[in-house]
Design a protein around this nucleic acid. Sequence first.
DNA 1: TATGAATGAGTGTTCATTCAT
DNA 2: GATGAATGAACACTCATTCAT
Lengths: 231, 231, 231, 231
Amino acid sequence: MGGATARRKRTRRPREQREQEILAAARRVFGAQGFAAGSVAEIAQQAGVVEGTVYTYFATKRELLLRVVTDFYEALIRDVEGGVRALRGAENQLRYLIARHVAVFVEDLGICRLVLSEIRPDPALYGDAVLTLNRRYTAIALGVIERGMATGELRGDLSPTLVRDLIYGGTEHALWRYVFAGAETPVDVLSDALADIVLRGTLAQEAAGESAASRIERAVAALERHAEHAT
Amino acid sequence: MGGATARRKRTRRPREQREQEILAAARRVFGAQGFAAGSVAEIAQQAGVVEGTVYTYFATKRELLLRVVTDFYEALIRDVEGGVRALRGAENQLRYLIARHVAVFVEDLGICRLVLSEIRPDPALYGDAVLTLNRRYTAIALGVIERGMATGELRGDLSPTLVRDLIYGGTEHALWRYVFAGAETPVDVLSDALADIVLRGTLAQEAAGESAASRIERAVAALERHAEHAT
Amino acid sequence: MGGATARRKRTRRPREQREQEILAAARRVFGAQGFAAGSVAEIAQQAGVVEGTVYTYFATKRELLLRVVTDFYEALIRDVEGGVRALRGAENQLRYLIARHVAVFVEDLGICRLVLSEIRPDPALYGDAVLTLNRRYTAIALGVIERGMATGELRGDLSPTLVRDLIYGGTEHALWRYVFAGAETPVDVLSDALADIVLRGTLAQEAAGESAASRIERAVAALERHAEHAT
Amino acid sequence: MGGATARRKRTRRPREQREQEILAAARRVFGAQGFAAGSVAEIAQQAGVVEGTVYTYFATKRELLLRVVTDFYEALIRDVEGGVRALRGAENQLRYLIARHVAVFVEDLGICRLVLSEIRPDPALYGDAVLTLNRRYTAIALGVIERGMATGELRGDLSPTLVRDLIYGGTEHALWRYVFAGAETPVDVLSDALADIVLRGTLAQEAAGESAASRIERAVAALERHAEHAT
DNA sequence: TATGAATGAGTGTTCATTCAT
DNA sequence: GATGAATGAACACTCATTCAT
């Protein structure tokens, strides 16, 4: 009729573009609702296609999920590797890595939750692909730590992998609190505090009267904590 | 044997005992497959009863899950609180807490995975009961840290909650590696190493004491950043 | 122990009395929730016995229902037969029957709804027993009508059964409106109005200027209608 | 035939047609067994589809029911309104309405039973949609009655809604007898007889005109009763 | 006789996947 | 290649009834 009701033009798009639209929709849906709860029907709808079409691009729901996660990880790794290369010194680099990890968690909470809560615990999903990507991602930190130990900037008597686990695990754990509380995450403050613990430890220096600097620092830290709680 | 279908003998047990059998089955099934994937049908089968019977003991699948988790947490808390009371000194107590956390993770991986991956992210499951229990559990570490800071045994310029997050998060992260690798977890070695990092930090001593100047600089910078946020 | 917690004395009651308690509970439950929705479990609980006990008194849920209905009908019939015998004249008796029917509907709405909505439509429930009772009940009206026709007090050219159907059906239909509206039913007014229609019909009298009486009557009826709508 | 399980050929039909097939099946099943007792499984089977297919057309069993009833009512209302328009005079129109009501009850007993016995008593089913339709249907009779009273063709001293209740209620009641007896319903005879009673009443003429005195007495008594209630 | 734990067939509903068009 | 109607197996949950105690 050529009437008002927009008769959807059978949009013929390049295959590549359609695929990206479906991936974007899947990322939104999986991020918001998780893998199990997010339905293929909704992904199709958000991508502006029909359910069956999704299956011409991705053989199964699982495969679609893995592509979403893979794409996410690869962009992240590319980005972080660049960032590390631009810095000098293990401490600087570790502080950057922690800050970046905190930031990505806050920005892409949905995907992070997806990986941690649904993919990682499920052997059927957490296959070689994701495992490899995760290793590549955390290997960045591992490299930094190992080089820091080699140069003597970091203590050499600790397991590098454990240090790395502490960084990522501690970060995630700390972030959950903000997520559950529904509070705005103080990204910078949190990153610094985490880095401090990992780098300097929690034991008081044995040497008494150590330094004016540390006393000032302690005062600042107390100030920060106070401010943190006040907000 | 010989009969086509093993006609279940209708057995009768004290209520308390049946309940425990169902709880044990639920713990196995939920631990192995998770909450969503674990079916009531399988729990019933493993408990040696019929599906309907499960519902005479627990009103919903969710309620059954919560009982499983509650029972688990309460035994754990009782145990850990006793352990901490028996020790003196923050370092000793933290080392014990880390070791115990590692151990429980290894022994009850299924339940831990369940709590971390399914209950915690889902507001419908993560209700007051589990929230309270989780707080009680992590509050043990928090108390140890705060007392350590008060006595001066631990550095007082760190956020106690962050230290706690680092302990639990780092532990969990480190353990996943063994889980995925299917490797036997070296509980003692791992516990000690984690404790070392948290307590002593990763920076080499020279670096830690490097220069008053640089530490003042960093402290001021942090102060500045924080002031920006506050305005 | 003899403790505070009232250890329920194994109440040993005469069989007859237990049966009455169960019947009373069943009447409440079926009346409030209907046959399908009312569960044997709840009836047992309200009767203060255990599910299995119900089945030592009544073989099936259906049988229990039928006893409830039977008891209800028999008391009703006994009562109404007595009432009719005490009156003289078909008109008086019909007015009484209508008023009584309206009243029982209002007082025992639950049971009436049960009979009309669940028993009557279901051949499996509406067996000989209820059918017979219903016939006995409506036969009272039938007898009145037939005797009225025989004496000439009522028009003889109408089907007695149809007149009866009109009385009962019209009453029920009119009452539903109040039930749905949740309004207090004006029992007396409604009874009279129904009786008027059945007895006098709706066609205007052919004879003009018939009577001062009918004009007054009409005015009163209009007044009533007005009041009815105003509340 | 020969095959162990009749492997259903996957057929494809225009959406509209499938929907009608499912609606027809639902009408049969709900009509025969009621809403609660009729299962989606059987509807699907009778429609020649699989259970899941039903849910691609109707979101819930309840929605399917409402469509069945809505479709039924709308066709009925359309038909009856046309019929009334074609006639002149309140008596003629009422006779037509009664006859039509009797006929529809006989033809669509299942649906009528459904509406009266399951939908109307259940607030969850008897929502706005059905309520409105039912009002539209009975409003037709109401309009006829009111117009008849206005023109003086019908007695003006009766409540129009009560007259309507008598028509519909009496009709329904009378019909149950035939239904239970399993007898062929004499539609025409029944319609005429019902109309006679409603229109002319049952009192013999002498009685109807018996005495101005007694009628005045009754009217005054009614007025008194009503005044009591009003205070 | 009374108990109440146990049964098991049944319910409506969901959704990843397939395949005729 | 794209479609979307159709599939079918699975799920949590209910409840009248049975029967070992």
